[in-house]
């Protein structure tokens, strides 16, 4: 491997031509997107550079608790993003979401680095953070979907749920169909992405590895592992999360709460 060709500052400057082109288009066609374009372009540069510096710093960590702390912060940020995505929640859910993601993603990522990729040590941040980060990034929308489905169905199917309660069902029995539907909603995106991968798009991770000089076949193995770990991690986290959040939607004496 020769490593990746570093893009020169001049080259980077030239790439702004693409954004300028969009800006000129917006002005001539009076699309009103100039401000958003400028703001978006500035944020792209700032956010990515910030991330670059943080990663350069984090990649110097050589203690497992430091690496894991970074990962925990990443998951906490993801839980906050999920909070913003879910419309009309019935109960507060950030804590259960954080807890479910934390447990499942941590275990899955540790398994992948230690048993599958066999990085030594398993917490090597160069592997742990990007692999774990990919699971977080790719599962945020699935987690939000599962929660949204849960709240929506609890609202729409109140009559059904209360009918079952009236016939002596427990809260879990009364909401079993809702539970299944929410877990399904959370699992489907990662399953569908297994169907589409490699046909219509080269995943970002493979692109990166190929550019960095890895053989496409080595990159494929990584991508397969990532897809599989995504399926496993979202399954475990969705089931945990939906279980915890559903419990919060019922009172101790098994009534569906109202909001």
């Amino acid at each position: 491997m020769n490593g990746i060709i570093d893009i020169s500052w001049e080259g980077l400057a030239v790439s702004t031509v693409f954004v300028l082109l969009a800006g000129v288009t917006s002005l001539t066609l009076r699309l009103g997107l100039e401000k958003d374009l400028l703001w978006g372009a500035l944020r792209t540069v700032a956010q990515l550079y910030l991330m670059g510096f943080v990663l350069r710093y984090v990649f110097g960590f050589d203690a497992w608790y430091l690496v894991c702390s970074v990962y925990v912060i990443m998951i906490a940020l993801a839980a906050v993003i999920v909070k913003g995505r879910v419309k009309r929640p019935l109960v507060r859910f950030v804590a259960p979401v954080f807890f479910s993601m934390l447990l499942s993603y941590l275990v899955v990522t540790m398994l992948v680095t230690s048993v599958i990729v066999r990085v030594k040590p398993w917490y090597d941040p160069v592997y742990f953070i990007p692999l774990g980060g990919m699971v977080i990034g790719n599962s945020i929308s699935a987690v939000a979907l599962a929660l949204e489905r849960l709240f929506e169905e609890l609202r729409l199917r109140r009559d059904e749920i209360e009918l079952r309660l009236c016939l002596g069902a427990s809260a879990a029995q009364a909401s079993a169909t809702v539970f299944r539907s929410a877990v399904r909603a959370g699992m489907i995106p990662s399953i569908s992405s297994m169907m589409g991968v490699g046909i219509v798009w080269i995943p970002g991770m493979m692109t990166g590895q190929i550019l960095a000089g890895a053989s496409p076949l080595a990159a494929v193995k990584y991508q397969i592992v990532v897809m599989f770990m995504l399926v496993g991690a979202t399954t475990v986290s969705t089931v945990m999360m939906v279980t915890l959040v559903r419990r919060k939607c019922f009172t101790d004496d098994e009534r569906l709460i109202r909001r």
């Binding site: 009559d159 209360e162 009918l163 009236c166 016939l167 002596g168 069902a169 427990s170 169909t177 009534r255």
Partner: peptide, 23 residues
């Protein structure tokens, strides 16, 4: 009511809802 398990209570004092729901 607070001292009776809800499932037991609902089996003894059973409600027929206004709109019949088939599940």
């Amino acid at each position: 009511y607070d001292e009776i398990p809800p499932r037991l209570l609902r089996r003894k004092a059973a409600l027929l809802q206004q709109s019949p729901v088939m599940v």
